[in-house]
């Protein structure tokens, strides 16, 4: 399925599920996501992780809701399954979508201005360097006997200086390679958006609406 439409579908369903109180639809969504993840060969370890973490959080949420609130068993069941819907659908999306393909699709299919698409890509490719930089800053402070915590302004200060420096350099590098903001572009790799994607998108959304509004518990 087209990445932009897939993202739109998942966000739309997550938004609806957040307000709806139909646990059967939640269970159906969990089952469908699980089957699709299995079909896409998501590793068993990842699936276990995706199950244990929400199990812990939804249990504590349900426990505190029943202890500190006046929630009905039906509502507790809805809340319990809702967290699994978020996690499984999110897992399905991230495990089957490449960030690069998603950005390309957002630019070509969803008409995101190319300066945003390429700006994001430039920064995302710095990810390993950014991780290393945080470690370096902490180590450098440690050598002077300073321990930087996540509440130390100095840590953020140094991080922001590095970020400003890098963004200047990257922007200059892109300009010198001929990138012009707002100029028309051609694409070496096109992401197809075909009728089948729209049918799938519409069909899934319709199915969820039917499930939510036909009076299921």
């Amino acid at each position: 399925m087209n990445p932009s439409l897939k993202l739109g579908l998942i966000v739309a369903i997550a938004l609806e599920v957040s307000f709806a109180q139909v646990w059967t639809v939640n269970v159906a969504l969990i089952a469908v996501s699980l089957i699709l993840m299995l079909l896409n060969h998501v590793s068993f370890k990842r699936l276990l992780y995706l199950t244990l973490v929400p199990l812990f959080f939804s249990s504590t949420l349900v426990w505190s809701l029943s202890l500190r609130g006046s929630a009905s068993p039906h509502f507790l069941l809805v809340i319990f399954t809702r967290l699994f819907v978020y996690v499984y659908m999110g897992g399905l999306f991230t495990q089957t979508t490449e960030p690069l393909t998603l950005t390309r699709s957002l630019e070509q299919n969803a008409k995101l201005p190319s300066k945003f698409a390429y700006g994001f890509l430039a920064a995302f490719n710095l990810m390993p360097k950014i991780r290393a930089e945080v470690a370096t800053i902490k180590a450098a402070a440690m050598m002077r006997g300073q321990v930087l915590h996540f509440w130390s302004p100095q840590l953020y200060f140094k991080v922001i200086l590095a970020a400003m420096n890098w963004s200047d350099q990257l922007a200059a590098a892109m300009t010198s390679h001929g990138f012009i903001e707002g100029a028309p572009r051609t694409h070496a790799m096109t992401i197809p958006l075909v009728a089948r994607d729209w049918w799938l998108f519409g069909g899934c959304l319709l199915l969820v609406q039917v499930g939510l509004f036909c009076g299921l518990p």
Partner: peptide, 29 residues
């Protein structure tokens, strides 16, 4: 208005925050 430098800067900042917050994930649990 948004220029390429600002877009890269906001993304790098977001990634930095993401990395710093990644560390406190276990604290939350």
């Amino acid at each position: 208005r948004w220029h390429i430098r600002d877009i890269i800067l906001v993304t790098i900042l977001a990634i930095f925050m993401g990395v710093i917050f990644w560390v406190i994930g276990p604290l939350y649990t």
